[in-house]
């Protein structure tokens, strides 16, 4: 048991159980809740963004430009393949390409300057929003662009399995497995933890800190534009707005998932459970007698409790260091 409690995902798993218990008390039928698609769809869209954001946070960085990358991905595929009627392949390449490009900008600015990545990605977030708005207006004249995707693309990226569950759930599971391998099995994972622990020591140990930082920013921006692309294909249209909620939701999911804001600690499994917990609170509340307006309060309280728990954990782990 004490071994379990020392794991980064322990808090998230306990939070999920606590929320399920609370909702059951609030009148939700657990079977109905677990069988519902709404919160799983919500979790999958959020989860694909939350994992690479969490990896960045473990490495000691932050990326909030994902808020603009989701509409950027949607608009890119809709403008190229919808408005101009070009091949969906070009649209998809455009959506993912814009993610790679912004990730490179974020990463290079972060390693070349001493400005915190929170500020850099705040800048690119706002700049990207401006770019999407202007781009949409100049190229299409509207803020909402239609997209008709070929059947195969719909099957792969925008299908509703059983008429309710978005196919992006499978992408989430697959990507979570890839990120799990990356962080917990490959040596890159060790480098990410080391970077979050102490960048200078990591560099002295021969870890390519700059390249890895840039790579992680590319992963987070591209994951966000991928989610946007899937949404455009699913809903047959793209809007210039939306996506801002993902910034805060992703950070809450990651922190509830046990990642330390100061870096160096966390797990993919924890982030997945943090995302599930967040999604159950946000969407599962409709299955209870509890007024849905309470859901943000619960999420906010959960975030504060998680931060306090994570901080307590960090203190305990560092205890001998402070003995003088």
């Amino acid at each position: 048991m004490s071994r379990f409690l020392r794991r980064p995902e322990a808090g998230a798993i306990l939070s999920l159980l606590a929320v399920l218990a609370l909702f059951t008390l609030g009148g939700a039928d657990l079977g109905n809740l677990l069988g519902a698609a709404s919160w799983v769809n919500f979790a999958a869209n959020l989860g694909i963004v939350a994992i690479p954001v969490g990896l960045l946070m473990i490495a000691g960085e932050m990326d909030i430009s994902i808020g603009a990358m989701i509409p950027a991905g949607s608009m890119a595929v809709a403008v190229i393949s919808g408005h101009y009627g070009l091949s969906i392949w070009l649209g998809m390449a455009g959506a993912l390409g814009i993610g790679v490009a912004l990730g490179l900008v974020n990463g290079i600015l972060t390693v070349r300057t001493s400005v915190p990545s929170l500020i850099i990605t705040l800048g690119t977030l706002v700049a990207m929003q401006g770019l999407i708005l202007t781009g949409a207006k100049v190229l299409t004249g509207t803020a909402s662009v239609e997209l008709q995707s070929p059947d195969w693309a719909r099957q792969v990226f925008g299908q509703l399995i059983g008429g309710s569950h978005q196919v992006i759930i499978l992408w989430w599971i697959g990507l979570a497995a890839v990120f799990w391998f990356l962080l917990h099995q490959s040596r890159f994972g060790n480098w990410i933890y080391a970077m979050g622990g102490d960048k200078v020591s990591a560099r002295n140990a021969g870890i390519p800190v700059q390249g890895l930082t840039i790579g992680l920013f590319v992963l987070s921006a591209t994951s966000a534009s991928f989610v946007g692309m899937c949404q455009a294909i699913l809903f047959n249209s793209a809007q210039v707005s939306g996506g801002m909620g993902y910034i805060f939701n992703a950070i809450v999911a990651v922190v509830v998932g046990g990642v330390l804001l100061t870096g160096g600690f966390g797990s993919v499994l924890g982030i997945v459970f943090g995302t599930l917990t967040f999604a159950v609170v946000a969407q599962g509340i409709y299955f209870t007698q509890i007024d849905r307006n309470w859901s943000n309060l619960i999420n906010g309280a959960m975030l504060l409790v998680a931060v306090a728990m994570n901080e307590a954990f960090r203190k305990r782990a560092m205890a001998p260091l402070r003995r003088k």
């Binding site: 933890y193 080391a194 622990g197």
Partner: peptide, 17 residues
Amino acid sequence: GTFPLMSIGRSFFVGVE
């Protein structure tokens, strides 16, 4: 060691895993 939040085995081999 400068990586208090890493395991003994992981921090021992940072960069040369």
